[in-house]
């Protein structure tokens, strides 16, 4: 401290080493009062909010409770009133948000499918709520955006619907799940006939094939092999059975588009016909999602993703 300053500001009165002094610069009053206010604030806080630990418990706060609706594991709801805490605060806020969202779910639930799809405002809700529901529940198999994966899950963005693409059918698929399979023909048909029938299948959708073999395959398809029983005489499939339409460009279980050579494509079809398929399992969502959630998902899949046709 300079000598000049020591003269103008009072000191504690202690002097060391002849002239070393300690200044007493008092804190400004506004600062002191702000400090006192924080102390008063903290005391009010202790009284109103959970604060002090007492053994294994703690002070709960006075006159500051939160009431919220809690849903138990068995599905029943109960009103709970607790002292103020962050978890209850979150619950009560979620209650409020859910109540707000429920208005829209109720509106969709009370409106027939066709009417919802004609209402831009309701479709705006379907777009956003459906996207969240889809991402949470469907995207693990059908992929983000519903593109699906060949050999694993159907593409929901295109216009191919194995079990039908109407609102009713989509709702049925989500609610009850699906169990798609195709029997193995290895042993039922000899290898050369498997190849012939595979050539015929490729010919149906205009893929490269051996015309002569395809002609022989035609007969096997309709008679000996019994393929037409499920896939139909024209090979167009049957949505009631979930049998695939073999005449379109769409492939789910045989990765024909993924192969660049004719041999490769043929190989894929032969593999499927001989080995069969038992992976076409769509889980049941009936008990896991609420009916109105399934309705929103149906609308989302039908109008925002695939277009139902």
């Amino acid at each position: 401290m300079s000598q000049d300053k020591a003269k103008s500001v009072s000191t504690t009165g202690h002097v060391w080493d002849e002239n070393l002094q300690e200044l007493t610069n008092p804190l400004p009053m506004w600062w002191v009062w702000t400090f006192y206010l924080t102390i008063i604030f903290s005391i009010i806080y202790w009284i109103m909010y959970p604060a002090w630990p007492i053994g294994t418990s703690y002070t709960k706060g006075v006159g500051n409770t939160i009431t919220y609706t809690n849903k138990k594991v068995d599905g029943s709801e109960e009103q709970k009133t607790t002292h103020w805490n962050m978890r209850s605060k979150l619950m009560s806020e979620m209650n409020a948000h859910n109540a707000e969202q429920k208005q829209w779910f109720d509106k969709v639930a009370a409106t027939p499918y066709e009417e919802v799809s004609k209402n831009a405002e309701l479709m705006n809700f379907v777009n956003s709520a459906g996207k969240t529901l889809f991402s949470d529940n469907c995207a693990p198999c059908h992929q983000a955006g519903g593109v699906g994966k060949i050999g694993f899950s159907p593409n929901l963005v295109d216009d191919v619907w194995i079990y039908g693409g109407t609102y009713e059918k989509i709702q049925e698929t989500i609610t009850g799940g699906r169990n798609g399979m195709m029997p193995a023909f290895k042993g039922v048909l000899p290898d050369d006939k498997l190849k012939q029938v595979a050539n015929y299948v490729l010919s149906l959708s205009g893929e490269p094939h051996d015309a002569e073999a395809a002609k022989a395959g035609d007969a096997i398809f309709h008679n000996e092999g019994g393929c037409a029983v499920c896939h139909g005489a024209e090979g167009k499939g049957n949505p009631d059975l979930g049998s695939a339409n073999l005449t379109d460009k769409n492939w789910l279980w045989a990765n024909v588009p993924g192969q660049s050579t004719a041999e490769g494509k043929l190989d894929e079809v032969v593999k499927l016909v001989s080995g069969g398929m038992s992976r076409g399992k769509m889980p049941v969502w009936g008990g896991r999602l609420k009916p109105e959630q399934i309705k929103v998902l149906t609308l989302y899949v039908h109008d925002s993703l695939g277009g139902g046709k």
């Binding site: 004609k118 831009a120 405002e121 479709m123 705006n124 777009n127 925002s304 277009g307």
Partner: peptide, 22 residues
């Protein structure tokens, strides 16, 4: 252009909407 079943898009005053077009 395919707008689903939307015959027209009605937007309230001061509001906004998202629709899907194909």
């Amino acid at each position: 252009l395919d707008l689903g079943n939307l015959p027209e898009i009605r937007v309230r005053a001061g509001k906004d909407l998202n629709i899907t077009a194909k």
